[in-house]
Design a binder for these strands. Structure first.
Length: 877
RNA sequence: GCCCGGAUGGCGAAAUUGGCAGACGCAGCGGACUUAAAAUCCGCAGACCUUAACCGGUCGUGGGGGUUCAAGUCCCCCUCCGGGCACCA
């Protein structure tokens, strides 16, 4: 790193007359003072009667090191918290640690340290970094998810959910990361690879797993997105896609038993002589249920397609090794494509089973195929193929020469009245009319969908149905460093929940972390062997631990009442603080963390614990911090360490740069020269303040003069314009970069007139007003320097709770305006008029301008656009 | 393929309601201070044309079209970059 960087005060600086800005001296001094005041940033109790404001930044994983993304995240939250304090709110601004999880075990393997020690040491280190940054957290509310005081409530919630059937166990195919040697949730699989190991392909394994029934809330999670108008539309859309609700219908097709099979030409549907009994699906007749969103196209269904894993496939292929082989190939193709994440690119393949099913609307026989593009884990694992009206089916049918039946026509088919004009296939639009569809012919698609689903329901072979992409939340992890699932397996009594009064189920401390697969806890007999709470007999403890997303789904409730030993939190206290007014974090949590948190809140509401339907009122997703256009990463070697920045330029400059370099919602390119620039700015502020300080102090006890001289007026105007800018930005779009630029402009104005100010051209009282407000504005961005100057000014009230000054619109207003004068929309002159001048004055002033007179000479004025205070535009010929 | 962002000087950006494009900062250049350098302070600074210089002019917000007295901003089409989703039936 740069050893001989500027801005560190040197010994020679001491000889200068004006003191130098030295964050290395100021910041630790204030840090020590703040640290000694435990309740400096403490929220007041709900009884304070004040309006509450809950500002929250996403809790970090205690990796041991803050990165710049954290610094940015916390600088945003801290600026907001400090501002809201000054606005008089009762602010809750807590911080904690997402302290369970795999890295602790990996570190244990590598360094031979217990995960607990490693984690706690990391927390201590990062807490120190946060304190050095001067962040205004209420540390008395600090929560670490790995302590029994916290995770016991995970277990408590688990039991409540188990009682209500929201936590259940099922045998399921799971995503298995061979690197992690554990199960991943669907959400943790990215392009077929582990979200932590981007190179590691996730395998499918069959395991008994615990699940949370989040799908029970799928509809509400979707519906309530509409209420979250304080959330970015982008996040809401991502969640909508993730939930993936589709409305449609299920339809049952009866499989024609092998012995009744009467084939027509191989791929053409054949009209069968069907008896009444054959039409009715009966228990002894196999059914294939398909899910479709386009039941209106069902008359165009010319085959059924099964997923390779569909249960009936094995039966259909039982006596044909050749068929079995082909189906295995299809399955293999699908699996590989899935693992690679490019399912969409997979070439369509399939094979006819040789069996047929009865189309419930036409009573025709349709062939049953197995296709590699039909997925077992969506819908019913079987689809009806409508080649004329579905892209994929069209491609498939073309490839295998399957029949194609047009049953939907564009509403305005160009030629031929009775629908002779053939649409371009596949025709998938829904603003269309049905043909060749029996009694439904002539209906519009939408109407047909209703009627045909109802028809299917009346006749007992189908019903309207809704399917979701969202799956239940698999929470089992075969890892050590997590919340033990509080269940016991007894040979006699089956699954037995750990009685509530025996919580927490403590994670054993002494455990050898090895690379062996399977759950580490199962190798700790003291833990795994337990008496059955029901029969007292020998039983086995559940050795899976919970996904860490459980921890982060409700931690923000615990902040409201962090020491409660009788309940996860007090309901009334939570009712006061919730919902969170502002949540700030990276967009990478738009789906996982935020959808689980929403689910958890709804679940707790149904348990009667909270009253709010949603945890977060306003969500803000900040942009990434990049360096040279690339995401910071060790492999790219472009990581900038916050510690280095603080050592080099101070915490104030570091965090202020993080807010200055770009608006918070955009990506930010970290440029160290920029931090140096902020540091220079802070030096200028400090130097100006030091020079002005005696007069600022003198001005404290004086009242403002009844009339201001021109310089005073000019400076006060700038001050109030700056106050206005900050007030509006904090209320609205949070473009702190322009706030800081505005403060810089104010300071530039002050230093430009420094000599005049020093020689008394500005009254002490005015100077005091400006200096005081400057410090108030700076506080949200540079708390250390602000505290220092505040103290030097002799203020004894607490800076954090000093009231935010209301800007004075009259003082902020310019009394002389510069108005552009255009000719045919091109700038030709700028004229100066008194504020409030009407159009006539403006016109007259413009007419008198020599440049304008010259430009207008000999031209015919067609029109004059006169906007008082804004613009003159002569339209000429 | 679908959805959502974004594109403005050498660089990060600003322009909040359609009204002076480039505030503020970085880097750069010139000057002051200094024996010198650093630091600091003052000044210049979109591109091009014209001029000895001033003055002046033209172009300019990814590209093309449109609306308007007036477009970075509104409308239509396109390109590129980033992110999300993706045989979801």
């Amino acid at each position: 790193m740069s050893k001989d960087e500027p801005s560190q005060p040197t010994a020679s600086a001491a000889t200068d007359r004006t003191p130098r800005y030295s964050p290395a001296e100021i910041e630790p001094r204030w840090q020590a003072l703040w640290d000694a005041q435990a309740d400096l940033y403490a929220a007041e109790p709900p009884t304070s009667g004040k309006q509450k404001y809950y500002v929250l930044e996403m809790l970090p994983y205690p990796s041991g090191q803050l990165h710049m993304g954290h610094v940015r995240n916390y600088a945003i939250g801290d600026a907001l918290a400090r501002h809201m304090w000054m606005r008089g709110y009762n602010v809750l601004h807590p911080m904690g640690w997402d302290a369970f999880g795999l890295p602790a075990e990996n570190a244990a393997l590598k360094n031979n340290t217990p995960p607990r020690n490693w984690t706690l040491a990391n927390i201590a280190a990062m807490r120190g970094q946060m304190k050095r940054l001067g962040l205004s957290y209420d540390w008395q509310r600090e929560v670490a998810t790995c302590v029994p005081d916290y995770y016991r409530w995970n277990q408590w919630f688990f039991l409540k959910m188990y009682q209500r059937g929201l936590a259940y166990r099922k045998n399921s195919k799971v995503n298995w990361c061979p690197q992690c040697a554990t199960v991943l949730a669907n959400e943790q699989v990215v392009n077929g690879c582990c979200w932590r190991h981007e190179e590691t392909i996730v395998e499918q394994r069959e395991l008994e797993q615990w699940f949370f029934r989040i799908t029970q809330y799928a509809d509400e999670l979707l519906r309530d997105l509409d209420k979250l108008d304080g959330w970015p539309e982008k996040v809401r859309t991502m969640q909508r896609n993730w939930i993936g609700r589709s409305e449609g219908a299920t339809v049952d097709f009866s499989v024609i038993p092998k012995d009744e099979d009467r084939r027509g030409p191989r791929y053409a549907p054949v009209q069968l002589n069907l008896t009444e009994t054959m039409l009715q699906p009966t228990p002894d007749r196999e059914k294939i249920t398909v899910f479709t969103t386009r039941i209106d196209t069902i008359y165009g269904a010319t085959s059924l397609l099964l997923a390779p894993e569909h249960p009936l496939v094995a039966q259909f292929s039982a006596d044909s090794p050749e068929l079995q082989k082909k189906i295995r190939e299809l399955l293999e193709e699908q699996k590989t494509a899935k693992e690679k994440g490019d399912l969409a690119a997979l070439a369509k393949e399939g094979v006819a089973t040789g069996r047929f099913a009865i189309h419930p609307f036409t009573q025709e026989a349709v062939p049953i195929w197995v296709a590699n593009y039909v997925l077992m884990d969506y819908g019913t694992g079987a689809v009806m193929s409508v080649p004329a009206h579905d892209e994929r089916d069209f491609e498939f049918a073309k490839k295998f020469g399957l029949e194609l039946k047009i049953v939907v026509l564009p509403r305005h088919a160009n030629e031929g009245e009775n629908g002779n004009a053939e649409p371009l296939l596949p025709y998938t639009h829904q603003d269309s009319l049905l043909i060749n569809s029996g009694e439904f012919t002539g209906l519009g698609c939408q109407e047909a969908q209703q009627k045909m689903a109802a028809f299917a329901q009346q006749h007992g072979f189908g019903k309207p149905s809704t399917t979701y992409r969202l799956k239940d939340w698999g929470v089992s992890r075969q890892r050590y460093w997590g919340t033990p699932i509080p269940m016991i397996h007894c040979d006699k009594d089956g699954l037995v929940p750990v009685p509530e009064d025996q919580l927490p189920v403590l994670l054993p401390d002494s455990i050898a972390i090895t690379q062996e697969g399977g759950s580490p806890l199962s190798r700790v007999p003291e833990f795994a062997q337990v008496a059955c709470p029901k029969c007292g007999g020998m039983a086995r403890r559940e050795t899976d631990t919970m996904d860490t997303f459980v921890d982060s789904s409700w931690y923000f409730y615990r902040y409201a009442d962090p020491k409660n030993s009788r309940a996860p939190f007090d309901a009334d206290t939570v009712a006061y603080w919730f919902p969170i007014d502002q949540y700030i974090g990276g967009v990478e949590h738009a789906i996982l963390h935020l959808i689980y948190s929403r689910f958890w809140t709804k679940m707790m509401r149904d348990l009667g614990l909270v009253k709010n339907d949603e945890p977060v009122e306003h969500l803000f997703t900040q942009g990434m911090v990049v360096k040279n256009g690339a995401k910071m990463s060790k492999s790219k070697g472009n990581v900038v360490s916050p510690d280095d920045m603080i050592a080099q330029y101070g915490a104030d400059a570091t965090r202020m740069y993080a807010l200055f370099a770009a608006p918070p919602d955009r990506d930010l390119d970290w440029q160290e020269d920029g931090v140096a620039g902020i540091s220079r700015f802070l030096s200028r502020v400090y130097r100006f303040a030091a020079q002005a300080m005696p007069r600022v102090i003198a001005g404290r006890s004086l009242s403002l003069p009844s009339s201001l001289n021109p310089l005073e007026r000019q400076l006060m105007r700038k001050l109030h314009q700056t106050l206005r800018r900050l007030t509006q930005e904090f209320d609205g779009r949070w473009h702190f970069n322009t706030c800081i630029a505005a403060i810089m402009e104010l300071v530039n104005d002050l230093t430009a007139d420094e000599k005049a100010i020093a020689s008394g051209a500005v009254e002490d009282s005015v100077l005091y007003a400006i200096a005081r407000n400057l410090v108030l504005m700076l506080q949200a961005f540079a708390p250390y320097l602000s505290a220092e100057l505040w103290q030097q000014m002799g203020e004894d009230a607490q800076l954090l709770r000093a009231p935010w000054p209301a800007y004075d619109e009259a003082l902020a207003a310019e009394h002389v305006l510069e108005v552009p004068v255009q000719i045919n929309g091109k700038l030709r002159a700028v004229v100066t008029v008194p504020a409030g001048s009407d159009g006539e004055v403006l016109r007259a002033t413009a007419d008198q301008d020599p440049k304008i007179q010259a430009a207008l000479a000999g031209k015919e004025i067609v029109k004059v656009v006169l906007l008082p205070g804004k613009l003159v535009n002569f339209v000429v010929r």
